[in-house]
Structure formats: C-alpha cells, structure tokens
Design a protein around this nucleic acid. Structure first.
Lengths: 355, 355
DNA sequence: GCGCATGTTGTTAGCGTTCTCAAGACTTGT
DNA sequence: ACAAGTCTTGAGAACGCTAACAACATGCGC
C-alpha cells in the first residue's frame, strides 16, 4: 500500500521524446541552442508525462538551489505569536517573498534565529549549509549584525539587509523611516500641533534612530523644541503604556504623539482614554506599521504604512538577479506613506488660562 | 571575488576523523552500531569542521526529504493580505509548523494554491515533484478537495487535512468547531439570552456547517428556536455587515450574535454602533478565531480561540511519525476554548411593552 | 578451540540533475 | 567546392549523500 507512483525523471522524458538527457535539460532551462522542432517535441513529452525537475537534484548538480532564505528573529516572533500581537513581519514578509520567488521559479524558506544567543553563527551556518540558499533576506535586528553579515559575505551568498542603510556588503534596503517620521511630524505641525512627542523603538534597531531623526528634523524646520518629548519603548504594548504616561505626565500641553509601533500606539490610546483625553480632539495619535489592528480601533488610527511586503519583494528580486548574473551591492530605499484615519485632527486651541 | 569558502562535505569529515563516509553518515543519523569511542571522534571532527549535511544530497540518496509542505489557499491569502485583514492562517500555521518541524530536524515550506482553478492538480503536482515533501498539511478549503487528497494518496505522501472530519485517506484534524459553537451558545443562554443568531461562514468550508450544528444543538437543548436567526457570510468584513443588518432587521428581539470570523464580528460591532445598540448592554457578540485584532476593539471581543498553531503543530508531528515509521490514518480533534472579554454580558431585560 | 550469531566498519552503486567537452550537421565566405 | 566557423546534439563525469551489501572483528555456547 501507499506505494507512490514512480517519479517522472528527466530520463523518462528523454526516452519518450527520443532525445538525450542533456537536450531535455536544455529545453527545461530555456537553453539557447535547440532546434524549435525538437524543442516542441520535448515540451510535448514534458507535458504529457507531467515532468517537473527535482529541486534537490538541480541543487546537487547545478550551481543554484532556487531557494531564498528569510531570517527572522525567533525571540520577537515567538513573543508576538504567543501574545497574539500581530506577527506582522512574518506574514507580510512571507507573502511578499513567496510571491516574488515563485514568479521567478524560486522558493522561500523561513528560518527563525535568536539574535541574542552566542551561537547565531552556528544556527545561521547550519541553515546555510543545509539549504545552500541562493540568497538571504535579513530582517531587523539581524540586518546589522556583523557576525551574520560577515558570515554571509565570506560564503559569497548574496544577501539583503532590510532596515539598514550601511552600504555593502549586501544590499541595504530601508523603508524610508526618516522620511516617514518627518512626514508624520510635518503633517501634525500643519494641523497646528506645537508639542509633538515621540515614543521610539529600541535602540538596537537602527530604524528607531532614523525615525527620531526625521521627527527632530521636522520639528527643527518649524522651530519647535523636542526636549522632554522623547520616550523609548520596545515596540510592545506595555512599554507603550509606560512611555505614554511619562510623556503626558511631563508635558501638560502635549497634543500629539507619534508611536514607533502599532502596539505602542494602541497603548497610548488606552492611556489617553484612561485620563479622559479624547482622541483626536485632545490628543492626536500617529502610529508606525499600519498592521490590520489599527483599522478597527476606536477611533481608527492614522498610521505610517510600512511597505514590508513590497520591500521584501524587491529584495528578493535583487537577490535573484545577483544569483543569476552577479551584480553590485546597492542601497535601496522604498518610501512609506501616511494613511490618515481618525486619530489625527486639528490641534486643540491652547488653553490660555491654564498652568 | 565573492568566492564562497568551499562547503564542508561528509568526505572532509571522514578524512579528518580517519574513517569511512558511511561511518560519518551513521553518526550523523544516529545509526545504532558505532563504537562510542569512534562516534566521539567523528563528532569532534563534525564540530571542528562545522559540518552540516546538505538537505539536497540527503534527499537525493535517502528516502526522505525532511520537508513538510503546507498548502494554503492563494486567493484567500492574497485577499487577506492586500486588504490587510489579519492573515491569521498563514502566520499561526507557519509558526506552529516551523517550530515543530525544526524540533524534529525537518523544515516547513509554504505553498499557495488556487482552489478554484482547474489546474489545482497541476500546481500541487508540480510542487510535490519539485520538493518531494515527506508530508503535506492541507488547510481549508483544500482539506476536502478530492482532486488533492486523491493525488496525495496516490503518490503515497502522508498528509493531514486541517478542518476535516472525514476519516481517511490522510489524517483528519479538526479544531472542535461544533463543540466551540455549542460552548459559546450555551454560555450566552446561561447569560439569559433567548434570541441568539449566527453569522455562518461559506458553505464550502465544512467547519461552517459544524459551527451551525453546535449552535443549533445548544439552542435545541434549551428549547430555543433558530428560525430566521442564521445568515451566511464569506468570513470577510462586508459580508458581516450585510448579515448583521439582515439579522437585526428581521429579529427585533435579538440580543446576541455569534460570528464565524473576527472580521464579521467586527462588522457586526460596527452595525450595532450605527444603530445605537450598545455592546454588550444591548447586544452580546462572540466571534470565532481570536486574532490579535479583537483585543483592541471597543469593547474587546469575546471570542472562540482557534488553536491553529497547536493543530498544525500536532499535524506536523503526526506526519513526521508517518514519514519515519508508517502508521495508520487517524481523526484527531483539538478543542477550542472561549476567551471571554467585554462584548458579552447578561441579556437585557425583555422590553415588556414593545411590539 | 570451533562454529555461529552479533557488532562494527568499509566498499560500491546509485539518486536526478547540470556541467564540460567532444562530435557531428549545417552555414558561410571566397 | 573547400576550409573555417557556428549551431545542435550527445556522452560522461560529478555533485554529496545513503542503501545495500560485503568484510572483518568480537563474543558466546558448547
């Protein structure tokens, strides 16, 4: 029982079409020098027999594995998952990646690796040795981990660092964090806000820094101060609560907060509600990420849309190009947009009498 | 440049340890008859050289590929993704799968396939031929597609059908839909509700039917009617709006709705708000899925928690067991729990004077 | 001490593909 | 019409690993 019908191999096709293995291989791979007549005959055999080359065999003999590996932070992923926060990285990245891979005849595989562990190298090395991927996509906070990038560079595997601006080795891809923060801040200024705070992400993510820069730059352009208006968080809900409280305690005239993640924005929304502040009448709120959650809060949140899927998709395309004909490293910036919903509004008229 | 350091192969280890290839292979695969002394020596060489067997080579020569393939519905996945609904299947399933796979030395690969297309067979056949997975996880609505299950059965590949109760071929795994619906309904009855409606999922998913059954059974147990209290949806937001409106129009005394997806529950929440009905004071709401979204709505929704990750995890374990030593098919039921939040409350006292 | 089971190691032959190189068929310029 | 190329096809090796078997050591009962 359960005997699988024998697999159709290239040899079966060759026999069926009356040609050599090599000719079939050439047809399959779009080889250049095959007579049209023969090519059609071989194609017919392939269709009739339902032949599909074995990925493993292709990897064995050829130079490519047709596999792109996507590396995620295990710790963060698992935390997100267990606590049922939106695991936005994973699904957006996976879908963007899978689609683009399959468009080019590649496959995407996801690997979870601990950043904090001492054996990042071992874990990554093992994955690479086992899979021998043609390219690797690194997500923060792996993107700027020297141990990782050095290892990949040494092995000569093309890789893309999502959320990094450092030129080479590897392709650096950013999602316009500085510009996005600047955009959000400017928009708030436009709405009349003069005291605009930021809840930043953890400093080990460079994008946290860029967002702070964008925010500061926008404030500076309008001659607004930023002292006491910055709090740090770890992207998680609880840290958002802490940060929002601290900001509101410290700045009685605060009218707007930009949070570096949806979870922290949600927390800020809750803090505002607790204190009887109406969003957006009393306090405007902008978040980063634009995960599905923020459309269904009350009010729905204005958010910077992180184009994760698109970024990964473009990263994959770059990697495949490098796998097939070697190209140079690059720094690529995808721009993020602002999706205005109902958590932002004109700044309240300054309470002239108070404090 | 960019020449990768040559890969460490089993031969390098063999030479280093002064043994034959086969001995190394035995050590790597935990073979039974190797002298401890030699085994340690080989292990030392493996560690020193950082050897990890090539998956492709293992697949080529051995009978296993160490790959589990997870099949998702492309259409639904893409729709969810584009519209930024929570792509709950994908990430929960992926994470549950990846973790369990890697625990056993396997890898999980995700494939998106169109159910509606006429060439499901071709798409799936291609994936199987290329990857030659040791097991396949099918998610609804693929789980009961004869074309797919027949193909897998014929090829002798173990597979698990998530969301199916039909015994064999393949492992059938359900997430206790009938029981969960019964539980939610009973709980509402307990809270004093007498008119409890359901917004069901599309009929092509058998779980839609089971949920309806559980709901009806609970109602019947308490002598409550179900006429006019059922509406169908497609799991999406818009369909939920339509269904909720129809239910409220038709049943003036309606005090509770169970929705077969979070999106539809969200829609119902919005419809209630539009009509000036307070949730949960005037209307109780229970949803299915318990995706991250429902924790942050106002009020947070009571929801049936679909243990997707756990189910997939168990499915993977079953598949691996079958890949290694053949076992019989099975029907496995994982039970879903009810997470009570603030969208459910005691039924309002019947408005005695009205209609 | 002999025969035989059992434990341990090595040898050989593939797995399905692509790469390299060589050989034959067909052009082309003169 | 002939040499020199170009296009087309095929043969054989190689990729890294495991399965199957062969060979040798070791232990045991008698």
């Amino acid at each position: 029982m359960a005997r699988g019908r024998k697999t159709v191999t290239i040899r079966d096709v060759a026999d069926d079409a009356g040609v050599s293995l090599q000719t079939v291989s050439r047809v399959v791979n779009g080889g250049p020098n095959v007579r049209p007549q023969l090519r059609d005959k071989v194609r017919a055999s392939i269709d009739r027999l339902g032949y599909v080359p074995s990925l493993a065999a292709q990897r064995m003999s050829g130079s490519r594995s047709y596999i792109i590996l996507a590396i995620n932070d295990r710790e963060r992923t698992l935390a997100d998952w267990r606590e049922r926060r939106g695991t936005d990285w994973v699904d957006q990245m996976l879908l963007g990646g899978i689609l683009t891979c399959s468009k080019h005849g590649y496959r995407m595989m996801v690997e979870l690796i601990d950043t904090h562990s001492d054996h990042v190298e071992r874990e990554l090395g093992a994955a690479i040795s086992a899979l021998q991927p043609d390219g690797v996509v690194l997500t923060p906070p792996h993107s700027e981990n020297r141990l990782i990038t050095d290892l990949l560079a040494e092995r000569g595997i093309p890789f893309a660092r999502i959320g990094s601006k450092q030129p080479g080795p590897g392709i650096a891809m950013t999602m316009g964090d500085e510009g996005a923060a600047h955009l959000a801040t400017s928009r708030l200024v436009e709405l009349g806000h003069r005291s605009i705070a930021m809840i930043a992400g953890p400093s080990q993510y460079s994008l946290s820094g860029w967002r702070i820069e964008g925010w500061k730059r926008a404030l500076a352009e309008h001659g607004l101060p930023h002292d006491g208006l910055l709090e740090g968080g770890d992207f998680g809900y609880e840290s958002g609560t802490r940060a929002a409280r601290a900001l509101l305690d410290r700045n009685p005239h605060l009218t707007a907060i930009i949070a570096s993640s949806d979870q922290m924005a949600l927390a800020a929304l809750e803090v505002a509600r607790d204190r009887g502040l109406h969003v957006p009448r009393d306090l405007s709120l902008v978040s980063f990420d634009n995960t599905p959650i923020v459309r269904f809060t009350q009010p729905p949140l204005t958010a910077i849309d992180q184009p994760i899927a698109e970024t990964v998709s473009r990263a994959v395309e770059q990697l495949i190009a490098r796998a097939e004909h070697s190209e140079n490293d690059a720094v690529i910036e995808v721009t993020a947009g602002l999706v205005e919903r109902s958590s932002t509004a004109l700044a309240p008229a300054p309470a002239s009498g108070t404090a």
